[in-house]
Design a protein around this nucleic acid. Structure first.
Lengths: 165, 165
DNA sequence: TGTCAATTAACAATCGTTGGCAATAGAGTG
DNA sequence: CACTCTATTGCCAACGATTGTTAATTGACA
């Protein structure tokens, strides 16, 4: 996602008006690595601007997604998550317990399929979602029995991590 | 997913009763590669058993998912899709236009991450969802302009296909 | 045969999200 | 500055998928 200033310019170019509400949402999203839901963006925005409405938040998030400045993610957590990081080459680690999401910068050059394998699909994107329990959930609750240990998992591509909530 | 007979046996073992409704749903799912939604299962079941209720369908699908006999998928199509194929090693091609899903049997040995990359997550599963427009949607509507052609995509793993709806 | 789970119908309720509406505010343009 | 037209707000209704409730009935299994 671009900077709030650049976004303002972009909105103007597209005939959209640059309102304080929208600027507020731009700021909330700037550098946000928590993959927030609309509700979370709403709360954060209200901290600065108590009268902002949930409607406007949804509206603006959709506008941004339309412009390709953020990505709406369906990670199976029950609600849309919005990711200002549109750098493409990253995927997601999702905790099935608390819903926490972490970015996974992975060397997934291999993650494309040839036309012959695409079964006629015009493939535009490939998303990988890794699911498991995050460290917090593991240490917090499951103090006793530890069945897993992730025995045979192989590391087959390089990955670099990035924060999140 | 096992055969209806085996499922019946399994249900009895678990103290669940084997009702005609459940058996009907077992049959609907047997060999079903269409990744049906609950509603679709409901319709198919009603063909055989007109009085079956949607509630029972949801109940039974959840039971089967609990037992690991089917997998509930969230493919971003707005509703849960149920996959009797639990063979693990396959992923999905989703048409963002009509929602059609195709199995993609892919050689994705590479699709595991090492403990060091898992950021403390106890990773249990990795799903890959490829999104695009299916052949039907492409030929049907987009007769004229064809911008794409999927220029630079590389084929980097073998994939075998499987039917779907 | 008897018990207890399962089913049914009909309906309310949930949750995330979108829509309508009327009134007001305010951004952009001239 | 003034005008216009979009945006915002508040409030509430509605959506679609799913789950819950209730009470009455059915039927599987021991």
């Amino acid at each position: 996602m671009r900077t709030p200033e650049e976004l303002s310019e972009l909105f103007r170019q597209r005939g959209r008006k640059v309102t304080p509400q929208r600027q507020c949402i731009f700021r909330v999203l700037e550098g946000n690595v928590t993959h927030p839901s609309a509700e979370v963006v709403y709360e954060a925005a209200r901290a600065e601007m108590p009268t902002i409405s949930l409607k406007t938040v949804y509206q603006t998030l959709n506008d941004l997604a339309e412009l390709g400045e953020i990505q709406a993610l369906d990670l199976g957590t029950g609600m849309a998550r919005f990711d200002p990081n549109v750098d493409g080459a990253h995927h997601h680690l999702v905790c099935h317990e608390c819903g926490k999401v972490r970015d996974l910068y992975a060397d997934l050059d291999g993650l494309t399929i040839g036309q012959s394998d695409a079964q006629g699909y015009d493939v535009r994107s490939a998303e990988v979602v890794f699911r498991g329990r995050c460290e917090d959930c593991r240490t917090a609750e499951g103090a006793g029995a530890g069945a897993s240990a992730g025995s045979g998992r192989r590391a087959s591509f390089r990955a670099a991590t990035t924060a999140t909530e």
